[in-house]
Write a protein that binds this DNA or RNA. Sequence first.
DNA 1: TTGTACGCGTTATCAA
DNA 2: TTGATAACGCGTACAA
Lengths: 339, 339
Amino acid sequence: MKGEELPTLEDVARDAGVSTATVSRCVNEPWRVAEGTRNRVLDSISRLGYSPNFGARALAARRTDTFGAVIPTMTNAIFARGLQAFQDELGRNDATLLVSSSSYDPAIEERQVRTMIARGADGLLLIGKRRSKEIDRFLERRGVPVVIAWTVGKAGPYSFVGFDNAAGAAALARRAIELGHRRFAFLGGLRRTNDRANDRVLGVRRALREHDLDPDALAIEEVPYSIDRAGEAFGRLVQGCPRPSIVMCGNDVQAVGALKMARRMGLSVPRDISVTGFDDIELATVVEPALTTVHVPHRDMGRKAAEVLLAQVRGTDGPQRIRLPTAIVERESLARPPD
Amino acid sequence: MKGEELPTLEDVARDAGVSTATVSRCVNEPWRVAEGTRNRVLDSISRLGYSPNFGARALAARRTDTFGAVIPTMTNAIFARGLQAFQDELGRNDATLLVSSSSYDPAIEERQVRTMIARGADGLLLIGKRRSKEIDRFLERRGVPVVIAWTVGKAGPYSFVGFDNAAGAAALARRAIELGHRRFAFLGGLRRTNDRANDRVLGVRRALREHDLDPDALAIEEVPYSIDRAGEAFGRLVQGCPRPSIVMCGNDVQAVGALKMARRMGLSVPRDISVTGFDDIELATVVEPALTTVHVPHRDMGRKAAEVLLAQVRGTDGPQRIRLPTAIVERESLARPPD
DNA sequence: TTGTACGCGTTATCAA
DNA sequence: TTGATAACGCGTACAA
């Protein structure tokens, strides 16, 4: 099955009549080789179909030009988008991307991180700041640059390229209050393992407090990421007493689940009840009513994360902390509450 | 920045008072080491925090336990789903996944393939069967197992784990004919670089022919993957003469674009015109009307593709050709045509 | 069951 | 500008 033996540096060297060192230079720092020699070598390389052996190169150079990303799931459009941008930027810099997903499980994430390091990743992209001390120590010990996305955090060994989840949620909540809403409910992800979900609740509470509303009166439902589970949770919230005039959701997918259930329950959005999302994925624009939500610059985040990581492995920069802006996108699902 | 020097096999050997060969065995074939020795070595390993150097291991063992996937885009839910399943299965087998996307561009795909091979991928997952002879030769020469997904193909050096795009589209077209539709239009992806898009058109034509309808009367719009572009194309099709009673779309995302435009044009689906999708992603269930579409077992495909690839690199199996079933999912967007 | 010793294909240092 | 050569860290015959 395996084709013939592949040519090595030495084969090329022999063919071109130079030393292996010269061939290596032609590949890695061509400008340090005389033009004549270089052309001869490059010719041999293409004629023989030579391509450097990855393992040997990694062993000798002590780097792989490979970066790892551990995300909660690839099937959420927000991570897919960010990841795509991350990979595009890596590609532009001749680096490749190793991916795995943790299903929002910290234990799995920890294993994945170790696997990626074992696989020789030069740097890592992780989501959110909630993880164990052990993994922190492990990463520190290995000296591998890490950038954390989707959130911002305190100074430390990690880079951050993210946004303020609490501020985004608070801004949207303020807008709802301004429209006259007083009875809020929140439908989001599992706060224990998901700091973004947690921060968004905190943001809403903060806005309530600012307007002298009771933050503890905020009804909260936490469910895993899924349209149907969100629908069920919406049903429970609506039956609460007093019935909320608005259900703010932790993300667009859950908001769509809420919308779907509202329709089934014969509730008109936003006439009977308002619903908001978070993320601003395409989905938000195709449902009826279109979602009012918080726009998150996923692509910028992914691209910027790659830039930061690349700069760190190149040693041209230390850990960064970059905060990207979010913005409220007003569509149709949020309106004045019924009288 | 880099932590202290990391321990090597030799450090462990010295610490445990054995040879490096024994340590290596403890890591790779523990059952070949006496229990006492093994425990001592494993203890040293964890105490020192040893983890094999990836480059060295790849160089010596001639494999990386890394697989590459080149997909058109990560932001299409269908690929995200398949990829997720693919990675999950790899993970269960202690292998990692290298990902990149080609934006449906064959030239980019070719570059990505070469990059992945250069990065030491033990096997590759590719989408669709349309690619250049050069890359075929290149892959053959390297002797790297390749599985092609999302389609089925003729016997050859590659494995296939996919489904029959033409048959799926034909089945849905037959159902539409059965409901009374006679004036068909097709709205799909770019056939030149996308064989799945092409096959789906072929399937519809076949169904028309079977029922003595003129396959050449099928109006066709080809647009890149995007809700808005699909909407525009839908507008053009609807203005065609005679106006189609049904617009079959190459995928669910384009169908949603069509739905959105229909609404804007004041057309009621399916009362004034029917619309169908292909893929059966979540999106199909949340729009109004819910999409009648062709279900594709994306997860099964991803998982199975990993299984096939793993079997091939282990030498326990040669190239496979696996055809997964598709199924029509009837929801609301397809109904009898208006009289 | 364990150890010896060589080879894997590069990179990088140093000298020419 | 080029060449010789020593690492790089591990796997694996082969021998004991």
